[in-house]
């Protein structure tokens, strides 16, 4: 049997006690997130959802925790079953598809959305995998103003793979 949280054990020992409140569950969820215990976080998020189906915070925590736990297929299922949640999961879904190497599908999804920094960054990574190096470099250059940490690593990779290694030094000097 899966290890249970202290709260759960307490509840089992004293059946007369009420089940943990949603606030208790969120406190527990937050603790798991802080400790990077993502599998546990998913379980607690599910507990919240069993009491409050469609709770947006719980759904979002569940999806993110599944992604961070590398359970990409499960994350996609969770997104799929969260149709009624108002949060827009398109970027998350595109990221999951990228992780599954479904690159065309991911790109198609991103193209339907408004351009955001995160979306453009993901697009550049997808284009790199697709071997479309010039497009990848163009997007990275557009993103340079956004001050994304380590972006220059991907930009240089794009330039080298595009056969434009001669531009690398100038690019790095300009940063």
């Amino acid at each position: 049997m899966a290890p249970k949280t202290k709260e759960k054990l307490k509840a089992a020992a004293a059946p007369s006690q009420p089940p943990p409140s949603i606030e208790d569950l969120f406190t527990s969820l937050n603790r798991h997130i802080q400790r990077s215990e993502f599998t546990q976080a998913v379980k607690v998020a599910n507990q919240v959802l069993s009491v409050a189906p469609g709770d947006e915070d719980a759904v979002r925590c569940k999806v993110v925790a599944l992604i961070k736990a590398d359970k990409i297929e499960d994350a996609l299922s969770a997104i799929q079953s969260a149709q009624k949640v108002s949060f827009d999961f398109s970027f998350y879904k595109a990221y999951c598809l990228y992780r599954q190497n479904k690159l065309d599908e991911a790109l198609e999804l991103l193209e339907k959305q408004d351009k955001t920094q995160s979306g453009m960054l993901l697009e550049s990574q997808i284009l790199y995998r697709l071997g479309k190096m010039d497009s990848c470099v163009d997007i990275c250059r557009n993103l340079q103003r956004a001050k994304i940490d380590s972006l220059e690593i991907n930009l240089v990779a794009g330039l080298v793979s595009a056969g434009r290694a001669s531009e690398v030094q100038g690019t790095l000097d300009a940063i």
Partner: peptide, 12 residues
């Protein structure tokens, strides 16, 4: 190449 998009996926 780094997966930098990962850092944009965060808990609410």
């Amino acid at each position: 190449v780094l997966d930098l998009a990962d850092s944009f996926i965060d808990f609410p």
